[in-house]
Design a protein around this nucleic acid. Structure first.
Lengths: 155, 155
DNA sequence: TGTCAATAATTAACACGTTAATCATTCTCG
DNA sequence: CGAGAATGATTAACGTGTTAATTATTGACA
């Protein structure tokens, strides 16, 4: 019953206990459930992250937004063109530092988040029901702990 | 000391406790340490996964290899061209089913794995030292458990 | 047996990941 | 002040992620 996902004849291979691959597999399984929602609203997973971060912090420059949304600056640079053309964000030279670009959510961008969030929360709740709230919280704690350990190494 | 990675002024935001993002962040932090090695040998992370799977199972078709290496078939289809041109794998029509492509590692492909593996293992060991072997094993167990739960849902 | 559905692989199109290089602006400090 | 270093953003180039459409082969079954 456990290990029922090894249905490809590979059994417990070396790659099966690799941390990067395990993280990838779980992430895929989770995202599988969100993708149809995002797709139905015409946003990618990454665009959704950018919009949500801008809702939390209303004015960010490219570097800060990239870090907060876990994107590399070149990816963000490309994306913002499209998001601005679609009227979801605005870009402007930052006051006081001409190198920085100041990014903000428009009313339309905010409205999109408002529209999608309830369904997104429902999917999260569904996952919590399937996996168990405790198990998810424990996993999040472990992930944060591992991240801290790696961040503090060689600091 | 803990939470020291929140250095961007966002503190504990909603995105900070999202499972997909947490998985992404940890994966990035881990891969950061492997990337220079792979790059120095001219293979991407995905190519490395493909070669390693083929070392574990010497003859696979596209579908089985894609599943085992966590790639989508179109990505694998593209990659195999390059890997074959570089002499790391061979492709051939499968005997008995003309739709299938049979993929195998060449001697050169096997040699590449042999060359890279020691350094890769050293990096894994380094990560285990930093994070702690127990913590990593616990994380792997939790990841597997969550994967099982999601796999068995709606089955 | 011949037709149609199912399966395996590929191709196409568009978006993102990654590294390196480039451009513009600001900062440093003599 | 002014030259050069540092910083923020962008562009370029190539590989992968993702979905949809297409091609080739096999399988099912009347």
């Amino acid at each position: 019953m456990a290990n029922s996902h090894y249905t490809d004849g590979l059994s417990l291979s070396a790659t099966g206990r690799s941390l990067p691959i395990a993280l990838l597999r779980v992430r895929e399984k989770v995202m599988e459930r969100f993708r149809p929602l995002l797709q139905s609203h015409g946003v990618t997973e990454q665009q959704w992250r950018v919009l949500r971060v801008l809702r939390e912090v209303p004015d960010l420059d490219m570097s800060a937004l990239a870090k907060a949304a876990n994107l590399l600056p070149p990816s963000l640079s490309r994306m913002t063109k499209g998001l601005e053309e679609r009227g979801l964000i605005t870009t402007a030279r930052a006051a006081g530092d001409g190198r920085r670009t100041s990014l903000r959510l428009t009313a339309n961008g905010s409205a999109l988040i408002t529209k999608v969030t309830p369904e997104s929360s429902a999917i999260s709740a569904e996952i919590e029901t399937i996996v168990g709230r405790d198990k998810i919280q424990a996993l999040l704690d472990q992930l944060e702990s591992v991240l801290d350990a790696l961040d503090n190494a060689k600091a």
